[in-house]
């Protein structure tokens, strides 16, 4: 499974593709929702590490529009529960991640993203 907390750090690494290479766009994805234990301390630890705009955009591609465009200053329960759902309960099982810059396709199969490149694509 690729959850969006993991997707939020994946970036294209094709040779020469060094700007606008993040976040990878989801296409043709199969999603499974699985409940996870709600842990506010975990979420507060990770919030500063998240690239917020990337997360909001990717959540939309996964058909979830519960997150605000700007990170709120007050972390109320409703916000944390939405964040919990987006980061930890949306599992991408199948599909493709596409680099916004060079359009390289990274497939996801059986919940495992394949970031391997061919020899000539490696930087």
């Amino acid at each position: 499974m690729v959850r969006l907390i993991t997707h939020n750090i994946l970036a294209c690494h094709v040779k020469g593709c060094t700007s606008n290479n993040f976040p990878l766009q989801l296409q043709g994805v199969q999603i499974e929702l699985r409940e996870a234990e709600f842990n506010p301390e975990f979420l507060k630890t990770f919030l500063p590490k998240i690239e917020w705009k990337a997360l909001v955009d990717t959540a939309k591609e996964a058909r979830d529009t519960s997150l605000p465009l700007e990170q709120p200053e007050m972390l109320d329960d409703e916000f944390l529960k939405n964040l919990h759902h987006v980061l930890l309960e949306i599992h991408i099982e199948e599909g493709t991640m596409i680099c916004p810059n060079c359009k390289h396709n990274y497939p996801i199969s059986n919940g495992i993203p394949n970031m391997l490149l061919a020899e000539h694509e490696v930087g």
């Binding site: 394949n114 391997l116 490149l117």
Partner: peptide
Amino acid sequence: VRANVLDQP
């Protein structure tokens, strides 16, 4: 994640 340790994904 499937990747190569020589790369930076």
